[in-house]
Design a protein around this nucleic acid. Structure first.
Lengths: 256, 256
DNA sequence: CGTTGGGTTGATCGACCTCAATAAAAGTGG
DNA sequence: CCACTTTTATTGAGGTCGATCAACCCAACG
């Protein structure tokens, strides 16, 4: 194992380019610039005056994480916040007896650490290889106080997350296993469509267990219900995801 | 039926004092002033410079609602936002087939309309007689843009609501009926303690059906589990609420 | 080519739901 | 203030959906 892969295994993150490999573990010099970032329109940083992007660049540290590595852990000090630029992350909480609930999935453009709390109230794990801009929490908070339009944008993101969470409360409180699956597939597809317009193929990089923990079900139930949806010709299971065969019927099941 | 009570029956709201009775229905002249408001410390308005409170007074319309009247309805235009000053409100969503999920309960100091959406995504109903400051949404939004510290405060409130919603996701996804009840009683008590310090008596002004719809259970299950908690001597059912007999054990059940 | 991790399917069980009856409380009108 | 109705809460008996326990499949990988 060479020095670089050792670094990777320790912090779960890897540099964006070989040139930065020897920098101290979580500190990588910027390989990308905000100016050229294709995700800016979707992210909180879309509210920033283009002339001021270099200020943000100075605060931001681009990072890359391997699939299944942890970005941060529930209960640990929240020293940083992240803006996801590529890949999928999974937010989860674990009860004292190890029951796990997945709170949500974060996609490119999503922000981790909206609450700016001192301690993380959930864990975040990369589901796929993942790229994100990292900011020191304190410095980022100061930056926000000086930029009301950016704070407003982040406030909007928080509001949106709140409505997503409330929708999930409805799903968990009142939907059957089949409705939960449909709601997850449609919801995940709709959020991906903002990033990548594909309407019928839904990539599912997470495991059945992760879906189960998100939907308040057991993985066997997820597997069974998926099979049932296939038998009903609502979906087809394809490598690394599903193809939606009857979106109308699925949306009806997902019901809003 | 006199003119005043007719007004009340039409809009579900009543003026705070007899003097304002003849004003047009949702427009009541201010009976209270921000300066003398005891709830300011708990509310978003706590971030406002005392010298500027008259600006807020000008925007605010104090209102009173009868128990079980609607503040606003899911799907309707969100023309106003509210800051609750007394009483308890209930936020809920209804599915097309009339299944209902209660999203949460709002207490004095809580803000309704954090998302500042054009349409309401849930309904809000007064559970008890309720007092609230009403603001025109547009005007309020402009006010926020001009007062970054107030926006920050509201952002904090949104973040807090988000963590509450995420906690409820865990409850609905992974907790048994008994754990849900315990979590509700402890959570509701803890939130009331911020307003009114009582530690052992928990007022439950909502119906069993409301609790059931909040906890993703049927009202019969709520009733049965409450009886079981009484048999286990964890609570005692008293008029309009419960007395907590074994807080430690309840907190353990509620698990966090 | 055995091992390992993830996924599917089957058989059984149990927590909560459903339907139903009763009890208690809160309104309502005389 | 008291009959009467209506609403809300409790309790019981039986049914169901998803959980549990277990076997098996399959692809990746050393």
């Amino acid at each position: 194992m060479d020095e670089r892969s050792e670094l990777v295994s320790i912090c779960g993150a890897e540099p964006l380019s070989l040139e930065t490999a020897l920098a101290p573990c979580p500190q990588f010099s910027a390989a990308t610039k905000c100016e050229t970032c294709r995700l800016r329109a979707l992210s909180f940083c879309g509210a920033i005056d283009p002339g001021e992007l270099d200020v943000l660049d100075a605060l931001s540290t681009p990072m890359a994480f391997k699939g299944r590595s942890m970005l941060f852990e529930q209960g640990a000090d929240a020293d940083a916040v992240y803006n996801i630029t590529a890949g999928v992350a999974m937010l989860s909480k674990v009860l004292p007896d190890l029951r796990r609930q997945v709170i949500g999935f974060a996609l490119p453009g999503d922000f981790l650490g909206l609450a700016l709390n001192q301690k993380n109230v959930f864990s975040v794990e990369a589901v796929t290889p993942l790229e994100a801009c990292r900011f020191q929490r304190e410095a980022f908070s100061d930056f926000l106080d000086a930029r009301p339009p950016t704070m407003r944008r982040l406030y909007s993101k928080a509001s949106y997350e709140l409505t997503l969470a409330q929708d999930q409360i409805v799903v968990l409180g009142r939907n059957s296993a089949e409705e939960r699956l449909a709601s997850f597939l449609i919801g995940f597809r709709n959020r991906w469509m903002r990033v990548n317009g594909n309407r019928l193929y839904v990539a599912l990089p997470m495991r059945r267990q992760d879906m189960a923990d998100f939907l308040g079900l057991r993985l066997e139930t997820v597997s069974r219900v998926m099979s049932r949806l296939v038998r009903q010709k609502l979906i087809a299971i394809v490598p690394d995801g599903v193809r939606l065969l009857d979106v109308a019927r699925l949306e009806e099941l997902a019901a809003h």
